[in-house]
Design a protein around this nucleic acid. Structure first.
Ligand code: FES
Ligand code: FES
Lengths: 147, 147
DNA sequence: CCATATCGGACTAAAATGGTCCGATATTAG
DNA sequence: CTAATATCGGACCATTTTAGTCCGATATGG
């Protein structure tokens, strides 16, 4: 339940789908190649995303992945938590029984606040925004992107 | 370099010292017992804190640990990073060479922002504040602390 | 000098992470 | 229908990290 490379892979995957024609099915291999993700690992990851209702998986010939919702509806937080589980940055905050001190510990509320803040930040970013930041290279050709 | 139980142990340890008479040396065993930290593990942890200049370690008979600075000068961030290394929540953000995509990846700036925010939140909390939140039980006896 | 108590580093166990493999199943082309 | 394609879904494995222990060396107080 931490931000790992799996998280980043998931983000890249959804980002790729967000950049494709809406609702189009993209082959796993294509995504893996374009985004530098180990293909078998992407398969596992995709299942988590599908289970969370973010993407649709089409099996069989000409199969692949597609978004279930418009990119503007998918938040970064949703993808992160689909990939790595609920985002919690302190074991103490995760399972209350592991920490009978919580009520007494003044640090507890700080962890909670930090977590809320972090999740809010990620929740405010949607994939249409991210995709838009990625598009320019195709539209504005040869602008000042070289450093 | 993540928030783990070691982080929490470190916080509790410094918190205990902050609650003691300023500059007093407290035995490791006492801290371990009072704060429910495995004593040998605290020893290892204390070395990290000492290395970071947060606490002073007194060896020999009647030895133990003491703060190097007034509690008001010690931030939660300092303790966290002393215990677990620099706080970074994305491997991608940690080592640039591991992620040649960083400049192109729109997620990158979000990770960076989230990290700044998180560190700022922790940096604004000092141990005199935390200690103050913990004191009441001794002063206000038998108030509404029972649920 | 001796008892006490930490140093500091080697060591181990368990969990999480990153990744692979493969039989089963679904879909499409022909 | 059948063959080819491509994912499912879960078992499996290697590496790294985490949590924790142990112990000889060293420092200090009495
Ligand atoms: S003891 Fe659980 S948050 Fe401090
Ligand atoms: S690829 Fe490194 S932050 Fe996205």
């Amino acid at each position: 339940m931490q931000l790992t490379v799996a998280t980043e892979y998931a983000v890249r995957c959804v980002l790729h789908l967000a950049g494709a024609t809406a609702g189009a099915v993209v082959a796993r291999r294509e995504i893996a190649q374009a985004r530098a993700i180990p293909a078998p690992f992407l398969a596992k990851l995709a299942q988590r995303l599908a289970h969370a209702g973010l993407i649709r998986i089409q099996a069989g010939a000409r199969g692949g992945y597609a978004l279930c919702q418009p990119a503007s509806q998918i938040t970064l937080l949703a993808v992160v938590e689909a990939a790595d589980g609920e985002l919690v940055l302190q074991p103490c905050a995760a399972k209350p029984q592991a920490c009978p001190r919580s009520p007494a510990c003044p640090a507890h509320r700080v962890w909670a606040k930090a977590r809320r803040q972090l999740r809010a930040t990620l929740a405010h970013v949607t994939f249409d925004q991210l995709a838009a930041q990625e598009k320019p290279p195709t539209r504005t050709r040869k602008s000042a992107w070289t450093s």
